[in-house]
Design a protein around this nucleic acid. Structure first.
Lengths: 195, 195
DNA sequence: GTACGATCTTAAGATACCTTAATTTTTTTT
DNA sequence: AAAAAAAATTAAGGTATCTTAAGATCGTAC
């Protein structure tokens, strides 16, 4: 496939927005990512499987979630175009995934195998930097979300969400937003009514 | 100061447990960290200051926390020997810190300035890898904590905390554990009574 | 060793959010 | 277009956790 197509353009954009990569290294990196199409509701990763790829969302929308002891879903992350989605714990430890990753809309992801990536790190040092910065950013974003859960009411979190992720709000059912916010769909519905 | 002392040994141990660093590079890295002693209750970082260092706890115990709109404290992280503590958001963006970092016990930290570290990354590639792995691990740990907050009762979280951080429990007052768990000290006290 | 500040406890009343279950609305499938 | 499935709403009753405020301990400084 051609690397000039839309899916790869998003990936190239993401890479080059954070680090400088010489042209020949960039095409080496890009060509190591393989596209995967997902129908709506298809699973990219099931609980129990080992996650062996880093995954970039080129198109569509996915979610990662876990089931708690009561069988309730908890959404960890949505992923739309330009985001990375995974069960990082599984990817890093090679242990069975504790989360699911599922397409909410028909989606395309670009994925690279762990072995390929580890080798690439040695040939393309910027790539190591890229992921370091990515993880740093992911960490601070998650920290902020955690603090929001600690200090804000459900209403405030919902308003923040709508302001911050207007694009995601369009693509996912309301009960998943409730799950992401850590409340029940019924309570979210009641909150919306009061507005 | 000598790098064979206890404080530096912990840092060397942390570095070499994750990446291989040639001897001469290692001493270059180590010598870039400067020790800083803190009395009990001293602030390593105040809200509003820019965090310019990465900080490794060699000895003692610290906490990072933020104040919400109601003036309530929320503890993000405890740091005992072997942990890294910071307001990462401030360090990465060079914007004023939104959190405080304070010593709970008399403590020693080893810190490296951002400029020094950025330069070192180019001479010691393993260091880039070290922090990538550190952030990956920090991210998954924080994710787990977030999910615990979403899916477990305060009682379960408290029991998990005691099992996981017996050493921290000894060093910090109970009301800070409550803050870390996201509950009030009164409620923690009531929970303990029921046991 | 006394005294003061910091921490912990107790208890009563309040509230944000949950549970259940039934109904309506929207979306998808045939 | 009808039928089926998925998602959203409504409402009543329940509970985990908070708020306030007072009193009891503990720790540390003088």
């Amino acid at each position: 496939m051609s690397f000039s197509n839309q899916a790869y353009k998003a990936l190239i954009g993401d890479l080059t927005s954070l680090v400088e990569i010489p042209e020949h290294q960039l095409s080496l990196v890009i060509s190591s990512f393989k596209p995967k199409k997902l129908t709506k509701k298809a699973y990219l990763l099931n609980k129990g499987e080992v996650s062996n790829h880093m995954r970039f969302v080129a198109e569509g929308c996915l979610r990662s979630y876990m089931l708690d002891n009561n069988g309730q879903e908890h959404i960890l992350q949505f992923g739309i175009s330009g985001w990375w989605v995974n069960d990082l714990y599984s990817y890093l430890t090679r242990k069975p995934a504790t989360h699911f990753v599922q397409a909410i809309q028909p989606s395309t992801v670009l994925q690279i195998h762990r072995d390929t990536l580890e080798k690439l790190y040695n040939r393309v040092p910027s790539l190591e930097r890229f992921f370091r910065i990515k993880f740093q950013n992911a960490y601070t974003a998650l920290q902020e979300r955690h603090l929001d859960k600690m200090s804000l009411t459900a209403k405030d979190r919902y308003e923040n969400f709508r302001r911050k992720y207007r694009d995601i709000e369009q693509m996912v059912p309301q009960y998943m937003i409730a799950s992401y916010l850590g409340i029940t769909p019924e309570f979210l519905s009641a909150m919306r009514k009061k507005e």
